[in-house]
Design a binder for these strands. Structure first.
Lengths: 214, 214
DNA sequence: ACCCTTGTTGATCGCATGATCTTTAAAAAG
DNA sequence: CTTTTTAAAGATCATGCGATCAACAAGGGT
């Protein structure tokens, strides 16, 4: 409105992190804040608002990222990368440990990583937007985690029920849905998530006749 | 770009549904297309594109809805309303029928309603946007469906495990996740969804020692 | 055949947004 | 202290968006 004084051009409210940072550092700072920002308002959040949060002018963002799309790519990368620990496949297939214990360990660690507002929301936003990374992540998850879980279950399953990939997705979905409920739908989660996860795993194992020590 | 000829002002490509419809009919037509449109591109889809799909000028939309927000409200209403059949609570608590059969009937019907691209995506978009309706829907679902399921399970549960609300959410989440996987993440769903649902229910019942005929 | 109601158009406004470019000044180099 | 480099600011452009409003014309009533 007024006489050429857009609020985003006024400097940061707090006296934090003024000017002339080393490029690498500034770049990281921008991406970090962008993750939080886009997780909150969606991928269509505007660059001026993001800049204001950083205490920086909007044009500076384009100094580090040629387009908004490039910034979003950096956000995806930061969010998706290293979310799947490379040693999980090995630990999930280590048959010296009971399967129940392996699953418990995995989902406890994994849920600690993904039951996080920023991750959960950006994953959903990018999924809805049809981001390729999203699809790739799930394919990867299927191959590296869920498929091994299926194999391990098959090796131990007793009785008539034979596990299929769909059973693993059901186990996985039931657990992940806890995060969706709380961070996407904004509902109250379970009082004890660990306990909820343990029960989900026990239900799964019981159905295939696998005991706690198997 | 050229000389004042915005493409959305050109009339419909197909010769369908030209002009001067009865207001009620037109309104319904707009809402119906808006559901499809916003489900596809997100709630921030623009009115010009929507109008073009309808073969109508953009300004006409504002003749039926004062603001875009009002149009979105109408979309929510159309999508959310009557999604929860009022006779489900009764049928779920009809103890002359085995619980397994009741759950199977419910989730078969319910999944037919919600495993639908438009619904699934708009629900997710509005959830991320923090829409009040979304929250209300889930509260309602909890009270009217999940709570009764908990009660019915409690009445039949044998053995040590006592069901809690979290168990019902786990059952529900595992099933709903099928729809999320397919329609939000764009993955391949189960070959036989009914079978997947049945197995999820059986896992649930087995855990609480409830047989197929109980 | 004429009029009158009103559904629909076409043009336009004000504003927000992504992006560009010149200018300023902080910090390093000499 | 002076010069040089370049991170950052400030101004601005082009476009796209929601929204408004006067003008037009389809269709029913008489």
């Amino acid at each position: 409105m007024g006489a050429g004084l857009d609020s985003e051009n006024i400097h940061s409210i707090e006296g934090v992190a003024r000017r002339r940072m080393p490029p690498e550092e500034r770049r990281k700072q921008i991406v970090a804040e962008a993750v939080r920002f886009f997780a909150e308002v969606g991928l269509e959040g505007n660059t001026r608002q993001l800049a204001r949060r950083l205490g920086v002018t909007q044009s500076l963002l384009f100094n580090y990222f040629p387009t908004k799309h490039d910034l979003l790519e950096a956000v995806y990368e930061k969010v998706y990368l290293d979310r799947l620990s490379p040693d999980w496949p090995d630990r999930l297939t280590d048959r010296s440990v009971p399967l129940r214990q392996r699953l418990l360990a995995f989902y406890t660690e994994y849920s600690a990583l993904i039951f996080e507002r920023d991750w959960m929301r950006i994953f959903m936003f990018s999924g809805l937007a049809g981001a390729a990374l999203n699809h790739r992540y799930l394919e990867h998850l299927g191959e590296v985690i869920l498929r091994p879980v299926l194999d391990e279950t098959e090796a131990l399953a007793r009785g008539g029920a034979r596990p299929s990939m769909e059973d693993i997705w059901n186990l996985h979905g039931g657990i992940v849905y806890i995060g969706i409920r709380t961070h996407i739908y904004g509902m109250n989660g379970p009082e004890d998530p660990e306990d909820a996860i343990a029960k989900a795993i026990d239900k799964y194992l019981l159905y295939f006749g696998i005991g706690p020590g198997d």
